[in-house]
Amino acid sequence: MVAERIGRKFELKDIIMIGVIGVLFAAVYLATTALWTILQAALTPFGAATFAVDIIYGTWFMAGSLSAFILRKPAAAFIAEFLASIIEMLMGNFGGPMVVLFGAIQGAGNEVGFVLTGYRNFRLLGMILSGVMAAVFSFVGEIFAGTVELLSPEIVVAKLALRVASAVVFTGVISWLAGKGLARTGVLKSYPAGADVPRARILED
């Protein structure tokens, strides 16, 4: 069982941490609901509401790329995104079981991003790739679920472009900055991301 072997490398505290990061972003989504509702409503009359989701879509992949940044091992991004989607479902997202399916698809995208660098780049490039792949995977997933293909081709391409851009900003740049800041605080001492941070500098003068 390959899955079992990979799963074994995840200790309880890793799993909870991945889950809590998922919970953190769930809290962020909840807090942004008001803003997002306004955006959605404002765009509706122009028929542009469909873009609202794409603008912030990148935030959905942040749990995956951040967890991979911290744990730096195969499957971390996938498991993180998958667990985050289960938690999202438990909290009452209207997608229900579909959210978990999409979580798995997005997680696979997140993971493929890191596979492309051979799990060697957990810096900005790796994070951006992870986000972009997650965006592409999620888009393909939506085409299969049949929620986009009735739109005209230009709009579909625009949606994809927006989503990828959102992923580059949120999943790539912002996750990377937040992850780097986190490593600097010293709380990641027992994780791979914290291991390569030099010992704290105490300046004697």
């Binding site: 600097r184 605080t185 010293g186 709380v187 704290a200 500098r201 105490i202 300046l203 004697e204 003068d205």
Partner: peptide, 11 residues
Amino acid sequence: LWRYRMLSPYM
């Protein structure tokens, strides 16, 4: 705390 100025507050 001056000698710790470049540390993260969490440290």
